[in-house]
Design a protein around this nucleic acid. Structure first.
Lengths: 210, 210
DNA sequence: TAGATTGTTAATCGATTAACAATC
DNA sequence: TAGATTGTTAATCGATTAACAATC
């Protein structure tokens, strides 16, 4: 058990949510502990990789015993920052924005949706999941007063970059980008892209192979 | 210019849609050709990687000239199987299903949505994007007669695996899975997962770091 | 032709797997 | 204690980058 010194590769971070999911399942099933070997079999990865991954963050296990499932689950949640209650807003109340606003998993993971914005007057004033849609004109004022941490962009490509600029200017820490474009942001602001058509294209390639 | 022999690493496949996107942009801008060096600067990757990636599929470039943008764009589309007009169905006409059904990019990339299914009687019969929602009871008959290539699962976790089994049983080649679970499918059937909460968690981690 | 830029081989870097001593 | 299983080092594998001869 030692504090982490080595930088954690991005590829390891990307695996953490998957571990988190499997550990959540185990808790539901009332499994109190698990060895890297048993988990490796469940998840289809090597036990070695599991132990290496966890040890980037210090030792969570105990020799001869394995890992305490609940402890490990909590620890990974902590590493991912799920207990920080990060607040987020959705910009773009189209189908995708609405799908995300009503997507229960986000709340379950400790994120709080605090605002929804759209520039369509027909949508402004309507309520989704208990939140009233505001006009994008009010965005900057809102950002300054409420200081949400995360902005979710579900707007057309053409609008994405200028909205991202506004988010950045008013102190958002991260952007979840659903628009078919890549955003330019300064070093301090993280972007995570969800390009649905990319996933479909990758699937398309795989189909061809079979 | 030689036919590919080496197996293409998954990591290269995942990059293809991004190349495709950038090349599409260049076409729009009327750029007829580009060197790996110029493209590398645009995309923020090394020129070496670009050339290596393309050469998994045989040489697309010309020494002293670079790459013909349109030719390369078409070639990558071909590799991804975008010209095959793959048919797809969406199962689950909730917010996410509707968002995908109206997601224009899919059609633009050559995929054809041919059916939408839900088990909620209130939704059955309604129309989305010109397609009438059918009851899930009709799914098997539909699969046998229409033989769609791709199934998009936007249903709750509890329903996902059994629906996936049905899709597999009736010959679907690939599944785009939005449910918060991992599907078991036989070797011949590809699955591409879109776990939105995973993306949010990864973003959450990155925010913490900054 | 001379210059530019690819295709491709070789070198480097990083991630995964294997092995095992430490230890619960 | 004996057995099990981690944490961690070392070996392997694969992916990225660099270099350059081939060639348009």
């Amino acid at each position: 058990m030692s504090d982490n010194l080595k930088p954690v590769p991005a590829v390891v971070i990307k695996r953490l949510p998957r571990y988190y999911r499997y550990l959540g399942e185990l808790i539901k099933q009332g499994v109190p502990r698990i060895s890297s070997a048993a988990l490796s079999q469940k998840m289809g990865v090597t036990a070695s990789q599991i132990r290496q991954d966890f040890n980037y963050f210090g030792g969570f296990g105990q020799q001869g015993y394995g890992y305490n499932v609940e402890h490990l689950y909590t620890a990974i949640g902590e590493i991912l920052g799920l207990n920080n209650g990060y607040s987020m807003i959705i910009i773009g109340a189209g189908n995708m924005g609405r799908a995300l606003a009503t997507h229960g998993t986000f709340e379950k993971r400790g994120f709080r949706l605090v605002g929804i914005f759209d520039n369509n007057p027909e949508l402004v004033g309507k309520e989704i999941n208990g939140i009233t849609i505001c006009h994008t004109d009010e965005l900057e004022t809102f950002l300054d007063s409420e200081k949400p941490k995360i902005g979710i962009l579900t707007v057309p490509k053409a609008a994405a970059q200028s909205l991202a600029d506004i988010l950045v200017k008013h102190g958002v820490a991260g952007i979840l980008n659903f628009s078919y474009s890549e955003l330019k942001t300064p070093a301090g602001v993280s972007v995570e892209n969800v390009h649905l058509s990319d996933s479909l294209m990758t699937l398309s390639y795989k189909i061809k192979e079979n």
